[in-house]
Amino acid sequence: MSEIDIKRISYLAKLKLPHEKEEFYANSLKDIIKWVDNLKMIDTSETEPLHNVTEKTTSIRNDEIIKINSVDDVLSNAPDRAQNFFKVPKVVE
């Protein structure tokens, strides 16, 4: 197993681990990944991945508009809003 780049993984997960916790998580992850590594022993070359035990959906919608809520319902939990927008600090490209 290769080293775990905890900085990169937390970047992908949008988490900013406090410095002192980076090692804690890195070690924990390493243990768990080592623990699940036994899957590599199984020959699955003939096996298709299983995404879901139900393999066929019965839900396909007709193209119809159904309004179930108001603008306010959508914004009522917003931490910050301006009129009917969600408000955030400026995104700088």
Binding site: V36, L39, K40, I42, T44, T47, E48, P49, L50, H51
Partner: peptide
């Protein structure tokens, strides 16, 4: 691999 083992 885990998805394949899930099928097994």
């Amino acid at each position: 691999q885990a998805q394949k083992v899930r099928r097994l």
